[in-house]
């Protein structure tokens, strides 16, 4: 990782100050002058700037962070979280979709089924992973693994990071809609705890297809909505230029989604985002997974499934028209 030095617009002032700090330190070393106070001041300034910057991010800036080229992907987290992991492949009917990965892994002595969308880090990988856009066989593989988890009574963790399910000819031929729909329905019947975490992009049905859970959580700098800001802009404003406005209108951040009670919680990221510190981000995720898995294990299977169904059935915002008030 971290081989890419992409700097987002709003991170530029921070990076500039950081390079100034480095210069100052180098200078101090070379010339043996005491600038320790200046360094300290600058460090403090950077810290404050960072806190201010990342606290007051616009929705679009969060979207940008969620897509940061250095952002950890599903397998990065899986290898960080687990002490042992065996990847399992294939949907047993068509193929092995590389855009969704999954397997059994051990976290703190306990076995989980971990499943998630996988993006690629360079051109070749991105192509192989299809930019994290799964085909129907990806959703079917995910469901197969979930059923395996149910059979052997292992809790399921899904990591969501997709710009959407793949819109292609073959995907339609093989029933993209049916594959996602089936997952939604079947996930309501699984007799093991399911914890879903949005780790990057949560775009529409392609995300929801593995995101029916007893706990649905979002990392701090992620988004989850029915459409990407770009596509929303192109449909409603007939141009891609209104993506920032679209992001604001869609209210797609973790804070928004928690406020609407459409998710169950937010997982803190290290200052500046998960891309800055994979270990720290993973350890926070691990803590949350273990805590939630423990609390879900206290429920009976019926309680677990009923609560899962009830939670999603309560989602919606509508009014009951008063009697005799015509439209």
């Amino acid at each position: 990782m971290n081989n890419n030095n992409t700097v987002l617009d709003f991170e530029k002032p921070i990076v500039d100050l950081e390079s100034k700090l480095n210069d100052m330190k180098e200078l101090a070393d070379k010339n043996d002058v005491d600038v320790s106070k200046a360094i300290k001041d600058l460090e403090k300034k950077i810290e404050t700037l960072k806190k201010d910057t990342y606290k007051n991010l616009t929705r679009w800036q969060r979207v940008q962070l969620s897509r940061h080229p250095n952002r950890p992907y599903t397998l990065d987290y899986i290898y960080e979280l687990t002490s042992s992991f065996i990847e399992l492949h294939g949907d047993r009917s068509y193929g092995d979709d590389k855009a969704i990965v999954g397997g059994l892994g051990e976290i703190d002595g306990k076995t989980f089924m971990l499943i998630g969308q996988q993006k690629g880090r360079n051109t070749k990988q991105r192509q192989m992973r299809n930019f994290g856009m799964a085909n129907p066989e990806g959703y079917r593989k995910a469901l197969r693994l979930m059923k395996t988890a149910e059979k052997f009574n292992k809790p399921i963790i899904t990591l969501i990071d997709t710009p959407g399910a793949f819109p292609g000819i073959e995907a339609e031929e093989r029933g993209q809609g049916e594959a996602i729909a089936r997952n939604l329905k079947e996930m309501f019947s699984l007799k093991v705890p399911i914890i879903c975490i949005v780790i990057g992009e949560g775009a529409s049905g392609g995300a929801l297809g593995i995101a029916i859970g007893d706990r649905v959580l979002m990392l701090e700098n992620t988004w989850y909505s029915v459409i990407s800001p770009e596509s929303c802009s192109s449909i409603l404003w007939r141009s891609w230029d209104y993506k920032e406005q679209a992001a604001e209108a869609l209210k797609l951040t973790a804070d928004d989604m928690l406020g609407f009670k459409l998710i169950d919680g937010i997982i803190k990221e290290p200052l500046g985002g998960a891309d800055k510190d994979l270990q720290k981000a993973s350890s926070e995720i691990k803590k949350v997974i273990l805590k939630e898995a423990e609390s879900l294990s206290q429920l009976s299977i019926d309680e677990l499934i009923n609560a899962r169904i009830d939670k999603f059935c309560k989602m919606g915002d509508f009014k009951q028209e008063e009697a005799n008030v015509g439209v």
Binding site: A181, L184, R308, C313, M315
Partner: peptide, 18 residues
């Protein structure tokens, strides 16, 4: 889905499937 209800609209897919 209806864009103007964003996340709420998405979750109707889950609700109806449940």
């Amino acid at each position: 889905a209806r864009m103007m209800e964003a996340g709420f609209s998405l979750m109707q897919m889950a609700k109806t499937s449940a």
